Simulated scan of single mutants.
Amino acid sequence: MTKVLVLYHSTYGHIEKMAEAVAEGARSVDGVTVDIKRVAETVSDELAKSSGYKMDQAAPIATVADLEHYDAVIVGAGTRYGTAAAQMRNFWDQTGGSWVKGQLVGKVGSAFTSTATQHGGQETTLIGLIQTLLHHGMLIAGLPYAWQGQMKIDEITGGSPYGATTITGGDGSRMPSDNELEGARFQGRYVAETAKKLHP
Rank of each mutant, 00 (worst) to 15 (best):
G82R: 06
S98K: 03
T115Y: 00
S114F: 02
H135L: 00
Q87T: 11
Q122A: 09
Q118L: 11
G142W: 09
T83G: 10
G142L: 02
V108C: 12
D66S: 15
A86R: 11
Q57C: 10
T83Q: 07
I61W: 04
Q118T: 15
I130V: 10
G128L: 05
E123D: 15
V73H: 09
Q118N: 09
I140C: 10
Q57A: 04
L67K: 06
G102L: 04
Y53M: 09
N90W: 12
L129Q: 04
M138S: 06
Y53E: 00
G96Q: 05
A62V: 08
A77H: 03
Q94L: 13
K101H: 14
S51G: 01
I130P: 00
K54A: 14
M55Q: 15
H136K: 05
A141C: 04
V100L: 11
G78P: 14
F112S: 02
G121R: 01
M88L: 15
H135F: 00
G97T: 13
A58V: 05
R80Y: 13
G78H: 02
A72L: 06
Y70F: 13
L126Y: 04
S114N: 08
A85T: 12
P144E: 10
A111K: 05
D71K: 05
G109N: 11
I140S: 04
L139H: 14
V100K: 02
I130W: 08
A116C: 10
I74A: 11
G96I: 05
F112K: 01
V100H: 08
K54N: 07
P144N: 05
G109D: 02
S50Q: 02
W99I: 09
G78M: 00
T63C: 01
S114E: 04
W92G: 04
R89C: 10
M138I: 06
W92A: 03
M138F: 02
T117S: 15
I74E: 00
D71E: 10
I130H: 10
T117H: 01
T95V: 15
N90Y: 10
F91R: 01
A48L: 07
G120V: 12
K54H: 07
G52F: 10
T79S: 00
Y53N: 02
Q87Y: 06
L126M: 08
A58W: 00
Y53I: 00
A48H: 07
A77R: 00
A62T: 09
V64N: 13
V75P: 02
A72H: 08
I127F: 13
L133C: 00
T83R: 08
I140Y: 08
A141V: 15
T83M: 13
E123K: 07
W92I: 05
G128W: 06
H69F: 00
